[in-house]
Design a protein around this nucleic acid. Structure first.
Lengths: 225, 225
DNA sequence: AAATTACCGTTGCGAGGGCAACAAAGCCCC
DNA sequence: GGGGCTTTGTTGCCCTCGCAACGGTAATTT
């Protein structure tokens, strides 16, 4: 059963041995569920009292725009953790979570997670839970930083630089299509294409589809302000 | 000692009796510190391993812009909790926390907070800690929602409606000056004044300084999209 | 290979809003 | 009351970027 491998790789259970996990899951009251494609795991407007870990397949969280359109927020594959931020609050879910593909999910009651049991494993999971939420906070904060930039060129420069830093090199691929990147940066897709074209003509970068190569990172750094 | 009253009102210690608190603080290894105005509590770029609770006075968190200017992020008075989000991650602080006024602060080592001790009080604090971080996440998410709106009028409408909802009435005061609100909405101050003037002339609202009165909330709701 | 569907680049148009500069009004302290 | 500082309103200029429409290329299906 290599499901343990996935669990050990998920942020929530990082640092635990298979033996730790085996004992822990039972005490936490974790249950395993299967969902068909399109099934709803969490309904927007409803409270949710458990943390989910994706074991197989993929899920998607989306909101309903005021006009009724679906606004995708995020997607997760095996190892993904959802419901962690919401569980901490007393709010109802702002997002609907659906199965993007047939999937297996581990559901853990939230109150059990917060119940200390003295074991080192339980403590570690707690630490991981807090870490997981904090990481999502900083992920959001990073996006705010981008959204605050005044010009489109600054947004693009800042985003590409941060991706280059994450990749550790100046040539990298981004996890977005053009349209998705435009959404992320909150700009028009054609305007984004236009700007990328300009920057390419100016010799700042090279791009084809999701692939990017930063030619003048220092110049980009100046622009990203 | 009405310091207990402040502690009991802080998100971190909500729901605890004075007796609970008395025993808990010692076991958590909490220490009390005093700071003069301008003193640095947390230095940007440095890690921080404790959660702070403001007992008296006020603190301010600020970042350094790329040009070296100070960008204030948030302010906190008695009851305010800081360092909670950061402690969950392994990052260094993105903000510098300084004393805006002479202040008293309670510092609690982060690892002690995550160490379960079986007591109901400890468990409650843990729950509160997670809640505190989650709340900050949703606060940020709320701002993202505003920043994503396309037009300035939509931003203003959405912001004012949410403030009205918070206040529970259509007449209320906002915690910002014009310039601060412009920063929050990420727009130009003069553009904001212009837009507010227009909306006032159209009979949508009334405003003087920080005071607002929404005259046509339904119309604003349509605009905030 | 044709057809259908994503994905991406390009361009013209026009307005929203950034920027700068100035003026008026409120506030504080002497 | 008068000088200085802060906050807010106003206005002209003009550039960026949203919007809409179209064409071209890659990916996928039949």
């Amino acid at each position: 059963m290599d499901e343990f491998a996935i669990l050990q790789s998920t942020p929530l259970f990082r640092g635990l041995s298979a033996a730790d996990l085996d004992g822990l899951l039972g005490r936490l009251g974790a249950v395993r569920r299967s969902y068909n494609r399109g099934a709803v795991l969490v309904q927007a407007g409803q409270p949710s009292h458990s943390v989910g870990v994706v074991l197989a397949g993929a899920i998607e969280a989306a909101r309903l725009g005021p006009d009724g359109s679906r606004l995708p927020i995020t997607r997760m594959g095996p190892g993904g953790v959802f419901g962690d931020v919401l569980g901490g609050s007393s709010l109802t879910s702002p997002v609907t979570v659906t199965a993007r593909a047939p999937c297996e999910v581990l559901l853990i009651p939230y109150d059990q997670l917060l119940r200390p049991e003295g074991s080192a494993a339980g403590q570690r999971v707690l630490q991981n839970l807090v870490r997981s939420i904090s990481d999502k906070y900083f992920l959001l904060a990073r996006r705010v930083d981008l959204l605050l930039l005044r010009s489109l060129r600054a947004k693009v420069s800042a985003y590409l630089l941060s991706e280059a830093e994450r990749a550790g090199q100046l040539t990298f691929r981004i996890p977005f299509t053009r349209a998705q990147l435009a959404d992320y940066l909150n700009c028009d897709r054609s305007a984004l294409s236009r700007e990328l074209g300009r920057m390419q003509r100016e010799g700042l970068l090279d791009t084809y589809r999701s692939s990017f190569k930063l030619l003048q990172p220092d110049a980009l750094r100046k622009l990203s302000q």
